[in-house]
């Protein structure tokens, strides 16, 4: 009883500190896009650049997108010649670094589209990380990423 009270007081005093601590750090999302697909397509994928500004590794564990039956974290890997889209339990984001989710690599797979995702439309997406951090962003549906065209 006494111990739990001490613990409660401890939590009361430490949690504002940890919140301030958390507020100094963030996970930034840039250049996000959902791939525009034909109207009858049953799946698509979301891509973006994720920058982890925390001093420790953070894992992207899930993504919420309205109108999608199942959102999975995937990585396209080439096993010799065969391209495999392998489901991942999480996407690791090392401390103070960026990871680009792009075609042919890491991506957020959207399976079972219950609504249309037409080119130009914007959708609310929530990314959930293992440290409790959540990032809400709006992502536009595009046919391709503009940046990719520069490599031509």
């Amino acid at each position: 009883m006494k111990l739990s009270r001490i613990f409660a007081i401890f939590i009361m005093f430490t949690s504002p500190i940890s919140m301030t601590y958390a507020n100094n750090y963030s996970i930034d999302i840039e250049d996000a896009w959902i791939r525009a697909m034909p109207s009858k397509a049953m799946s698509t994928a979301a891509f973006m650049k994720i920058t982890n500004k925390f001093p420790n590794e953070v894992k992207l564990i899930s993504v919420d997108i309205d109108g999608v039956q199942s959102v999975e974290l995937h990585k396209t890997v080439s096993d010799g010649k065969v391209m495999k889209m392998v489901k991942q339990s999480h996407i690791p984001l090392p401390a103070n670094s960026s990871l680009v989710l792009k075609p042919g690599s890491w991506h957020i797979m959207m399976i079972g589209l219950e609504k249309q995702f037409p080119e130009g439309s914007v959708h609310q997406v929530q990314l959930n990380f293992d440290n409790g951090f959540k990032q809400n962003i709006k992502i536009k549906v595009k046919k391709h990423q503009i940046q990719m065209m520069h490599h031509m």
Binding site: R35, M37, P38, K40, A41, M42, S43, T44, A45, H74, T76, M83, M85, P103, G104, H107, M109, M110, I111, K143, H144, M149, M152
Partner: peptide
């Protein structure tokens, strides 16, 4: 296959670019 969310649309987009070039 059309259910393919990454490899096939990437390939088809590459074909669009190839056609332009």
């Amino acid at each position: 296959f059309t259910f393919c969310p990454d490899v096939c649309p990437t390939g088809l987009m590459d074909m669009v670019k190839l056609k332009k070039i």
